[in-house]
């Protein structure tokens, strides 16, 4: 396993035939032109195959979006993607079906997500700085402990954790969801940042050190700005995981006015007894929109993140 961070970027670009990027892509195009008709046919075939696979994969999601704009009684009669007349009432109905309007759940989810992102950014970057740059006793042992916790199933700790938070009176607050992030328990991100910091030339912070800077200043003024890509990756992954998280929110939030989006969707499913799929689909689409936007704008960081650490 070679370290992706330390390889020269040019070396990677050679194998990355991105149509938009300058001379390399142009070279490819020329090569294609020169190629015989047989291999062009092959390439076309490949594209057809890939497009079909992609279509099959995304079909259910596209159908979900289209169905949310159809009257409920039409949804299951029509497997196609063509809409004859737009029906926005599903959205307005779904928005108000539960005891609180859907905006409450979106706001709750947003609060949890923001808390988790801030927590992860601050605490994980601090821990990562220590592991990557500082010498301290027992460093290797603690590092192994940190790596091991990445693989620990949540079920082993959830019962006592639940008891602890409930005795502190924190059930039906967002604290049990956010506090673990403030305490850097997402070791995955610590590791991601350690890897990133290792790729930053040591000369930069050593120069600052000679100028008499303390570690807090080196961390805040030199390291953090250089770490922006890793911080962005962390923020984006935290967003998606927290937005989708169901298990811990199911345990800790039981009052309807505290529900987050996944809990609201589940309550919606129970409350409507399978008769009003239109509004349920509409709210499902609403719940997926933030993920989709993040995907659209943060893709670069997502790909970099999973290439480095294997996150989902």
């Amino acid at each position: 396993m070679t370290d992706t961070q330390t390889r020269p970027a040019a070396d990677q670009a050679k194998h990355l035939p991105d149509v938009r990027s300058g001379p390399v892509a142009r070279g490819n195009r020329k090569a294609l032109k020169r190629a015989s008709g047989r291999s062009t046919r092959k390439a076309v075939l490949k594209h057809i195959m890939l497009t079909l696979t992609g279509l099959v994969m995304l079909y259910p999601v596209l159908w979900l979006v289209v169905s949310s704009l159809r009257p409920t009684d039409e949804i299951f009669r029509n497997p196609g993607l063509v809409i004859s007349n737009l029906e926005f009432s599903n959205y307005s109905d779904g928005w108000t079906t539960l005891s609180s309007p859907f905006s409450v759940f979106l706001l709750n989810s947003t609060l949890v997500v923001v808390g988790c992102i801030v927590g992860n950014l601050v605490s994980c970057s601090m821990a990562a700085y220590a592991f990557a740059r500082l010498k301290f006793s027992g460093k290797r042992g603690w590092f192994v402990v940190m790596l091991t916790t990445i693989m620990l199933p949540i079920h082993v700790i959830i019962v006592p954790q639940y008891i602890m938070f409930s005795q502190l009176g924190w059930v039906n607050t967002f604290i049990p969801l956010i506090l673990p992030k403030i305490l850097a328990t997402d070791a995955f991100f610590v590791f991601l940042m350690v890897q990133f910091i290792r790729g930053i030339p040591r000369e930069l912070d050593e120069a600052a050190r000679l100028d008499g800077c303390g570690h807090p200043r080196i961390f805040a003024q030199i390291m953090l700005p250089l770490m922006t890509p890793a911080l962005a990756t962390t923020a984006i992954f935290t967003f998606i995981w927290t937005w989708n998280d169901f298990f811990s929110q199911l345990l800790y939030l039981t009052k309807p006015e505290m529900y987050t989006v996944p809990l609201a969707l589940r309550a919606f499913m129970d409350a409507t007894s399978a008769t009003s799929w239109g509004p349920l689909f509409a709210m499902s689409v609403v719940s997926l929109i933030p993920i989709f936007l993040i995907f659209l704008f943060g893709q670069r960081f997502l790909i970099a993140g999973i290439s480095t650490t294997g996150g989902k």
């Binding site: 639940y162 008891i163 009176g169 059930v171 039906n172 039981t254 009052k255 589940r266 129970d270 007894s273």
Partner: peptide, 20 residues
């Protein structure tokens, strides 16, 4: 505060455990 029968008992159990 109302739910369906299935979800009701999970919820009551966790709320009771939480003194809530």
């Amino acid at each position: 505060q109302f739910t369906d029968f299935g979800g009701y008992w999970d919820k009551l159990a966790t709320e009771t455990a939480a003194n809530d």
